[in-house]
Simulated scan of single mutants.
Amino acid sequence: MNTDTKHNASHAEGPGVLDWHKSSYSSGDTGNCVEVATAPASTHIRDSKDTTIAPVIVGNPAWAAFLNMVEG
């Protein structure tokens, strides 16, 4: 994954800057692009083509379980 953008974050973990990474599986051809940023207790997921939409925020254990499931 490559660093794409930084975004100010105000959420339960406090203000800070998130370092967003575009998925290596994202393709400009299909319009299916996802970015992920991690914080100490959560993972933030957003549509890289419309960063004005609020990201989905999940706990790090839930994100790890998701990755384990899809990576099989």
Score class of each variant (00 low, 15 high):
1 M>D: 06
2 N>F: 10
2 N>S: 14
2 N>M: 15
3 T>D: 12
4 D>K: 08
5 T>Y: 02
5 T>P: 01
6 K>M: 11
7 H>A: 12
7 H>G: 01
8 N>C: 08
9 A>S: 11
9 A>D: 04
10 S>W: 12
10 S>F: 13
11 H>M: 09
12 A>H: 09
13 E>S: 11
13 E>D: 14
14 G>C: 12
15 P>E: 13
17 V>L: 14
17 V>N: 04
17 V>F: 05
18 L>H: 01
18 L>S: 03
19 D>N: 10
20 W>D: 00
21 H>K: 05
22 K>A: 03
23 S>W: 03
23 S>P: 01
23 S>D: 02
24 S>N: 13
24 S>K: 11
24 S>D: 13
24 S>C: 12
25 Y>M: 12
25 Y>S: 08
26 S>C: 08
26 S>E: 09
26 S>M: 07
28 G>A: 11
28 G>E: 15
29 D>R: 11
30 T>C: 10
30 T>M: 11
31 G>N: 09
32 N>A: 14
32 N>R: 10
32 N>K: 09
32 N>G: 08
33 C>E: 06
33 C>M: 13
33 C>P: 01
34 V>M: 04
35 E>K: 01
35 E>I: 02
35 E>P: 00
36 V>Y: 03
37 A>H: 01
40 P>R: 07
42 S>N: 13
42 S>T: 13
43 T>G: 00
43 T>V: 15
45 I>F: 03
45 I>W: 01
46 R>T: 03
47 D>N: 14
47 D>H: 02
49 K>S: 06
49 K>R: 10
50 D>Y: 08
50 D>P: 02
50 D>K: 07
51 T>M: 13
52 T>W: 11
53 I>L: 15
54 A>P: 01
56 V>I: 15
56 V>G: 04
56 V>E: 07
57 I>A: 07
58 V>H: 05
58 V>N: 08
58 V>W: 05
59 G>K: 10
60 N>T: 11
61 P>Y: 08
63 W>V: 00
63 W>D: 03
63 W>N: 02
64 A>F: 08
65 A>E: 14
65 A>S: 14
66 F>M: 07
67 L>K: 15
67 L>M: 14
69 M>L: 15
69 M>P: 02
71 E>V: 00
71 E>H: 09
71 E>T: 11
72 G>N: 10
